[in-house]
Every structure is written in C-alpha cells, then in structure tokens.
Nucleic acid binder design. Structure first.
Lengths: 346, 346
DNA sequence: TTGTATGCGTTATCAT
DNA sequence: ATGATAACGCATACAA
C-alpha cells in the first residue's frame, strides 16, 4: 500500500504539498493538484487513518457496548446508532457483552458483570474512542459506567442515575396512554391490565399511563382489574381467565408476548379475540403482526433511541450540546400500531 | 491521559524500559518492574493503541459489513463473530449497510449497491482492518467484494463464487433431510412441500434434501405435492388448501412464516394442526415457538456461521489456514428442533 | 506556490 | 539492566 511519502516521490513534490492537496487545503497550483490527484488514483493510494488519528489526536470513533446483540431490542437501537454515525462519518467500535448467553436472564439484577463492563470500557478507551454508548436490553437503573470517565458516556434504554451520563429512554407513560386512549375511544370502559414484573420500570410507567387515561375519561380506577404477569406468554394466559371472569371488555397487556397468552386462553374458551374480547399489546414486536387477528400494539422507538443517543453523543463530543433534558434523561415517544384486535363497541 | 513518556519520567527511567516492562519483556530488574507497574497504576496509565497499531503495522481489527442489522439472521451471525473475536482479542469494525431500509426487499437482485459496498470496503481498509467479513441477510451469489483485495475477505451466509473469498453457508440439504427423516420416521409418506421462491438457493437445496430422504426411504417423488410459495405467510396459506386436497398427511414448509400460513388455513378448515395434519417449518425463528402447537422446525446455525467465519478469518490473517473446504465453501449444519406439530402416525 | 522539519505515542534496535 | 534514538504515516507551523 502506497504511503503519502511514496506518492510524493512519484509526483516529484513534497509530502506537505500532497497532504494539503489531499485534504483540500488551498495554496496549491491547479497543475500540481491535478498531478497529485491523478497519481493518487493511479497508485491506488489509501490514506492510513491510524497514522492520521495519532497525529490529529482524535479518531472519530464511538464505543458501543451492547448487553446482548441477540435480544430483540438491541439490533434496532444499534441500527439507529449506525444510521446517524455513518451520516456523520463516525465509526462505531462494537462490544457485545453477551450477557444473556452468559447469565441467562438473571443478569439484570446482579452487579457482578460490572467489572466486565469496566474492563471493556478500558479497552475501548485504549483504542481512543471519543465517547461510549451503553445499550441495555431493557430499562432499569444501571450504574456500571463510572461517572469519572474522561470522555462522554450515554446510557441507551436504561437509567444511569448520574448527572454526568445522560439517559435515553422510552416514554412508556405516553405509550401506554396512547393505546388506552384508543381503547377508551372505542367504547371500552372496563379494561383489564396484565402487568410485567412489579419491580420493572417499564411496568410501573405503563401502569401510570393506564391510570392517567382512566382518570381523564372519568373512569374509576379498579385495582382488581390489574393482574400481575411476568412478561411470559404463560403468565398472560393465566391472568386472562381471571380478568374475563370480572367482565372486562378489553385487556391491555404490557407486552406482546403476554397478549399471545391471552389469545390462547380466549381461544380455549371458545371466544374470538378482537370480537368477543378486545386485546392490546405493547412493544410492537414482529411476531405480534402474525397473531390472529393481528395485534393492536404500540411499537417501541428503538431506532429513535439509538439515533438520539448518537446525536447527543456527537454533540457532546463537539461541545455543542443544547440540553439533555430535565434530570439528564430524554424520553422518546412510541407509536400506536392499530391492527385488528380492538373492537369498536361504541 | 498519561503517556508512556510521562510515566517514564515519573519513574526516573527511560521509555524503553517502561515499554519492555509493560509488554512483559525480560531484562528488567524486579525492582524497576515493581516501580513501573505501581506508578502505571497510580497515574492510571492507559496505553494508546492507535500509536501502537501504527508502530506495529497491525491493528487486530476486522471489518464486518452487514447488509442490514434489523433482519433476523444478521444479529446472531454477528454474535458468533464477536464471540470468537473477543476470545482472540480482535476488535470488529461494524458497517451497517441498511439495505433493507434503503431498498426495501428489492436489494437482493440488484447490483447498484455494489458501489456502496466498495466504498465501505475502502473506508475500512483506510482504517487498516486486517480482514473483511461480509454478512448477507440470506444466501445468494454476491459478487460485491473485489477479489483483488490485499487483505483476506470472507462471505458469511452467501456465496462469493471466487476462489479468493471463502464462503460460509448453511447446509440446507442436510437441514431439510433431517426434518424429513423425522417426518418419515413418524410414519408420514405423503408429505407436501411449500417451497420458497424458485430462484432461491435455500429453496433449491432444501428441495434436494426432501427428495433425498424420499428416495432413501423408497417413497416415490410426486412433483404435484410441491407447491411454490414466496416465503410469506399468505403464500403458505394459499398453498395449504391445495396440498390438503391432495391428501397429504404432513406439510413441510421451507420457512416458519409459511408454516404459520398453513396453521391459518388448517384452523379455518376446522382441523387441528399437529393432529389432523402435521406441519414442519424451517429457520427456527423465535416466533415459531409461539405457534399453537409449537412448530417443529430446524434452526439455522447463524451463530456458528459467524463463529466459523471469524475462525477462518483469523487463521487467514495468521496464515495458519488448514483448508477452507472444497470449492472454498464451508457448510455448517442445522439442528432439528422437535416440538409439537408433527404427529406420530406409525 | 512549495519544501523542511517536528511530533503524535509507541516499539525495537543497538549501545552502554 | 537500562537508555538513546529511529521509525511507523501523517498534518502542520514555518521557512523559502
């Protein structure tokens, strides 16, 4: 691979001149400019970015630490990150923690992988990344990033609880509110809920959204209509029977998987989902489009979270950040996905 | 951030000595070794890998070009790549082409994005990656990598058709054979097939596997039992009726989505999937586990393809490659995933 | 308009 | 056992 020095020699000019021309700096005559450019093409000159980075003391690279690439939420977030970073000519250095593969669903309430994270952060910093984005598999408080880092860090899809580290999260309150508004506007008043695990931030916020819309529409909040699920399909199945006994016309499930369990139970009872009982989900996962009837749900703004995170990151790197939002957390809105599982009974 | 020079000064020794100690080279006294190590800790010394890379003329990094992160096959392949690369202390530089987002399903038979690929390869090479892995969203012949590259390249989940560029692909013939063997051993003799698009390499190989097992079991191959689908659920639905009219006891679908369509039709006819008619899928996608009854299918060795690709790549980089397989293509086996949709009728 | 020289942080060669 | 120094490929201040 030709270096700038060889290129200069071939052209019979100095490296400084070549460097200037290659970087579109003014001051070179049109003649030499042409000569150099042509020769660069001819020799298939490839600049060595490593040398450039060393000289410039910056790399235009961002470390991305993902908890586990194979969990459904992560690829879309990374897609959002790459989308913006490519536009801005930043390179991402991906680190895949493989937490789920290693700890199998128990990782989210343990902290012994924090050392692993610290180690990966150190490695990334040795590679001179200019910032670090941590991508969580689902929202919770995660204090794995030291807030003494000499470079900016961002928590995507999780809460850093540090005023040094902005968090980008889903606006679950509004997400739940949107779908409940839709249900209420379709005439439903007795709406059962199947929640996620009670210690989940997602579950808590979505319940607030539910209560909010009830209140705004003058519907009394009946706690006996909220059943505790655990995000699994089978838990949706179990909760469904009890809710149906209480005469609800619709059930709001806090994820699409549990909604699947409700379909199971409804089928089993000889009822028709979307007709005899309305069902709504949450997350907007691909599989929800294949339920019969297709599930009305609200889709997570995964791509947008990644996009927003990298926007903020690059602003932080350039020192052009306007405002990271109150408490340093930025809420990204969800989109209602209307399909066929909620019936209009007005 | 402290440099090696500052560290040396703080220790009152030369940079050469510090470098030797930090790299576990022999020749330093135990005293200075301790001193340097402690001081490094104290100053929180962070080596600059960029400088090291420049000096060493290697980066221990591999460019990974993914067609689209959000397509289901890609994340698992990348997971396999990161798995092995992290073990070997290689860094991946991820480039997400976002083909699906840009061209929406038409990209796979056009070539006008090849220039895009070439550009990304060039960028990666400027960053001094030591090899490039191209990760396709589904298998086909893809000639987007010039076979004149000065560094090794590998095609994962696609065929390069170049003797310079090894290909790592699914062994679809054996995959289909496995599931057919299972069906036949459960007493099925009249087995319908719903294929993918006829120009698909996947579809062709899976059909060969189907025919192979029929032959080995002395079952006559009846072409009227193979219906042409197009990978979509609705096509599975459409083909199902006709197959059922022909009195098949089981249907082999070349992907899980079309199997879903068969479920739809079977339900509609008042029959029971997995009891009145046996159904098998292909791909092993997450959603197939949520069908009722759960779908018996064969799971794609996505992780293994990524793992194998990076193994081969690092061997290539080190010049320790044994054999890339006949025709430079390496077939990776699938795993049968027995669930509840195939009934034993023996 | 062009060239010379320096240094980015590191490793490695060769003295001492 | 340790140190001085060159070199990796590039950008830039400054000289010509």
């Amino acid at each position: 691979m030709a270096t700038i020095k060889e290129l200069a020699k071939s052209c019979g000019v100095s490296v400084a001149t070549v460097s200037n021309i290659l970087n579109n700096k003014p001051g070179a005559s049109e003649t030499t400019r042409k000569l150099v450019l042509e020769m660069a093409e001819k020799l298939n000159y490839t600049p060595n970015i490593v040398a450039k980075n060393l000289k410039m003391q910056k790399t235009r690279s961002i470390g991305v630490i993902a908890e586990d690439m194979t969990i459904f939420s992560i690829p879309d977030i990374i897609d959002g990150i790459t989308d913006y970073c490519q536009e801005q000519d930043y390179q991402i250095l991906l680190t895949n923690l493989r937490l789920f593969k290693k700890y199998n669903d128990t990782y989210y309430n343990r902290e012994d992988y924090f050392d692993l994270v610290r180690l990966e952060i150190k490695k990334l910093m040795e590679k001179q990344v200019e910032g670090i984005i941590y991508v969580a598999a689902h929202e919770r408080i995660i204090r794995c990033i030291p807030d003494t880092l000499p470079i900016p860090a961002i928590m995507a899809y999780g809460y850093s609880k540090s005023d040094k580290i902005p968090s980008i999260v889903v606006d679950d309150v509004h997400g739940a509110a949107k779908i409940l508004e839709y249900m209420v506007s379709n005439g439903h008043k007795r709406i059962g809920v199947i929640t996620g695990k009670p210690d989940s931030l997602h579950a808590q916020a979505r319940l607030v959204g539910y209560q909010k819309i009830l209140f705004e529409n003058g519907i009394l909040y009946d706690p006996s209509l909220v059943m505790e699920g655990d995000w699994t399909r089978i838990s949706g199945y179990r909760c469904a029977s009890q809710l149906l006994d209480k005469g609800v016309s619709a059930i709001f499930c806090m994820n699409d998987l549990m909604a699947g369990g409700v379909y199971d139970r409804v089928d089993e009872m000889g009822l028709k989902a979307g007709i005899d009982v309305s069902i709504a989900g949450y997350d907007g996962r691909e599989l929800s489009g294949y339920y019969r009837p297709p599930l009305t749900t609200v889709s997570l703004p995964l791509h947008d979270i990644g996009h927003k995170a990298s926007e903020l990151m690059i602003d932080l790197i350039n020192g052009t950040v306007i405002d990271a939002g109150p408490e340093n957390v930025c809420y990204v809105g969800c989109e209602l996905q209307v399909r066929k599982s909620v019936k209009d009974i007005t």
